[in-house]
């Protein structure tokens, strides 16, 4: 019969280790080593985990993360895998051998990646601003906008509408420019206190909040103080909000 091995992560270890019944659905988790690299796995049928029930999936996902963290804590560096990565065996093959063969084949690559994230962790940085407040500030600060918005007050309804359209267009343009400037500035400042940065997709936020940048940063696992300090300064700017999450296993840098 074909079998499956659900792979949580790769660690730097040559030991056969039991991590206990901490896996998805309370299943036993253990290592399959090849030389000095091990895969953290559990035994399962060769089918992906699927469920219509969001709470069930949520539990699986959190369990997946917790297993990786346990391994991270106990065995040092980890290369996390995504949810539901299952290695399947053929009819006759020993599942252990299939996993070993895979590590063997990818050995150099995995080694390189392990070195890269040694002692590091991933941190999420999301920076947003409040377009409403920024727009108001722009109108007050910018002479052209200020004059235009003053003019609107004295115009008849129809003309005022046209003026308002013009004003909004100008504000949009200036916001865009301002956003670009912020991006360049913040990116540069964050880069100085991180090892590496991945740019992630901007997420939609509730109006009038708007995300300026969404970054995954690679930095020291135990000391993110430099990054924290820098983000603090950014967060203290008027109408700029920083979300800082982590330390995550280095999902984005493997």
């Amino acid at each position: 019969m074909a079998e499956g091995r659900y792979v949580y992560c790769i660690v730097e270890s040559s030991q056969e280790t039991q991590l206990g019944n901490i896996g998805i659905n309370g299943i036993r988790v253990y290592t399959i080593p090849y030389q000095d690299i091990s895969a953290i796995v559990h035994n399962c049928p060769p089918e992906p985990y699927e469920s219509e029930d969001n709470d069930v999936v949520k539990n699986w996902v959190i369990t997946h993360e917790k297993v990786i963290e346990t391994a991270w804590e106990r065995l040092g560096i980890v290369l996390p895998l995504g949810f539901d990565t299952i290695i399947r065996t053929g009819e006759e093959k020993d599942p252990k051998k299939v996993v070993r063969d895979w590590i063997k084949e990818d050995y150099q690559n995995l080694k390189k990646k392990l070195d890269r994230v040694r002692g590091k962790a991933e941190y999420g940085v999301q920076i947003s601003w409040d377009t409403k407040i920024i727009s108001h500030a722009l109108i007050e600060k910018d002479e052209e906008l200020n004059k235009l918005s003053e003019d609107i007050k004295s115009k008849p309804k129809g003309v005022a509408y046209m003026y308002r359209q013009k004003l909004e267009k100008l504000i949009r343009e200036k916001l865009l420019r301002e956003a670009e400037n912020h991006f360049k500035e913040f990116y540069g400042r964050i880069k100085k206190c991180t090892e590496d940065i991945r740019m992630e997709k901007i997420k939609k936020e509730e109006e009038p909040r708007q995300m300026l940048m969404n970054l995954s940063c690679l930095a020291d696992k135990n000391d993110a103080k430099a990054l924290g300090d820098e983000l603090d300064k950014i967060n203290n700017k008027e109408s700029i909000f920083v979300r800082f999450t982590g330390p995550w296993p280095p999902y984005s840098f493997v």
Binding site: H64, T85, T89, E122
Partner: peptide, 22 residues
């Protein structure tokens, strides 16, 4: 949400034919 972004889109990708189709 931050966890989901990572766990579903990232991590080591295996390009082996022993991987269950996802």
């Amino acid at each position: 949400v931050d966890l989901l972004d990572r766990i579903f889109d990232k991590g080591v990708v295996l390009y082996a034919d022993v991987i269950i189709s996802v």
